[in-house]
Design a protein around this nucleic acid. Structure first.
Lengths: 248, 248
DNA sequence: GCGTGTGAACTTCTTCACAGCC
DNA sequence: GGCTGTGAAGAAGTTCACACGC
């Protein structure tokens, strides 16, 4: 195994994966579980790539970082590959997750079944609002954020989800880090400052729409420009791609 | 080599932006609005970069794609830059968005204020479940998904959000595309197949957690394995994880 | 024959460092 | 002096194409 990328934690169980690969492994895992349910024992790179929405060369290169995973001329053993990916992602046990902020969005996240089925257990809910504390959501009691250190310790929580308003998020992040949390998924639309060694991932719903907006803007220019003048306000574009044209 | 990215829609109002830049512009926009509220008239690349959580060289390179936006020795005019970014992102008018699936998550999204304040208007809610149709959420009535074509046309909707269970998502996507929608934000944990010309972005909450899980896994190996027992601060977690200070 | 695994080519993205303008 | 704008270097990621093992 004279591999080039030799990081400090390199080894058979800890390949030093490129970030882009790490981001795709969960997608492969989901596709594999789906294939397993459908009774597939093996799958080709072509087949798995299609199920995961990537091209097969990329998939093979990604999997090659995990060591020998497939069989030439045959493909990948579905069950075995699931095990290997779960191994490197650290999903061999269910990780306890804390959720802070049980407003609109937090409420929905607390009830989201997908966490439970894919390796996580919402272990505690927190809010700063005393009127919310004590409320029962999905079998859990909302606790006050002052209880963070105690609960994080009790439940061995290392991952937290922030679903508070933006103005509260940094403060919450500080308290989480102080309590020992080392990974944060942030739904608040703001930048979080955390010390080295703490990972933050961000999900911003409005940003996703704004990116789509850019491409919409672009597409409408494509259809509007060649035909000379554009009509503001009314978009005559995009009724159907490949469908019959609509009178403008 | 004068690197002229000259695309079909290239021009002063439609610079051909790198995808990575497009993905960051919304973040700059949010930071700028924040700065404007705080009364700042101008901001340096250093200042804006800090507010947006990127480094200043990257920010300058990104903004340079928009044409001349700053003033040397001074910085960027906050209001002007907001206008320019909103221009290229196509946020000069509020875009109507359809939301399909008013279950757990859909409900929360329908009530999410962030859409309204950042360029979008939830114009319609849909569900396939007749028992949900007619329900009022946040001032909107839930309509049956069969009404899609009619409403999409009436409200000039080109962007839709899918918040249905995974098994229904592809079918919903097909109907959206048929109705004329050309951009989709998908919250269902599955891959969507859509024709060319339709953009899909995906948000998968469990995947985000699984990526964090990988890094947690990695970190725990770091503290467990190495003989180099130097603990800076608390847990010894305080270096080289996201950092590229990897030693040889 | 088939399909994985992989060097090599290529593209995209990031960072550096400094010229040019205010 | 200060800060933007940008070529050039470098790093990361993707795609190609084919050798190799089944």
């Amino acid at each position: 195994m004279s591999q080039q990328r030799t990081g400090p934690t390199d080894g058979p169980d800890f390949p030093d994966l490129p970030e882009a690969t790490v981001a795709r492994l969960p997608e492969y895992l989901r596709a594999l579980h789906h294939l397993a349910e459908d009774g597939h024992d093996t799958v080709s790179s072509e087949g798995l790539a299609a199920a995961a929405g990537v091209n097969s060369a990329k998939l093979r290169k990604d999997l090659s970082h995990l060591g020998r995973t497939g069989t030439r001329g045959v493909g990948y053993d579905v069950t075995l590959l699931i095990d290997q990916i779960e191994q490197v992602l650290g999903l061999t046990h269910r990780r306890a997750v804390a959720l802070v902020g049980v407003g609109n969005l937090g409420h929905a996240l607390a009830g989201y079944a997908g966490f439970g089925t894919r390796g996580f257990r919402i272990a505690a809910l927190f809010d700063a609002d005393h009127s919310r504390v004590g409320e029962h959501i999905n079998g859990l009691v909302v606790r006050h954020i002052d209880d963070l250190p105690e609960v994080v310790d009790q439940e061995s929580i290392s991952i937290a989800v922030i679903a508070t308003p933006a103005h509260a998020a940094q403060h919450v992040a500080d308290r989480l880090v102080e309590a020992g949390v080392t990974s944060v998924l942030n739904f608040a639309p703001c930048v979080l400052n955390v010390p080295d060694g703490v990972d933050v991932r961000k999900v911003d719903l409005a940003i996703e729409l704004q990116i789509l907006s850019f491409h919409e803007h672009r597409k409408s220019a494509l259809t509007a420009l060649p035909a000379a003048v554009q009509k503001p306000g009314r978009v005559g574009m995009a009724n159907r791609l490949g469908g019959e044209a609509v009178a403008t």
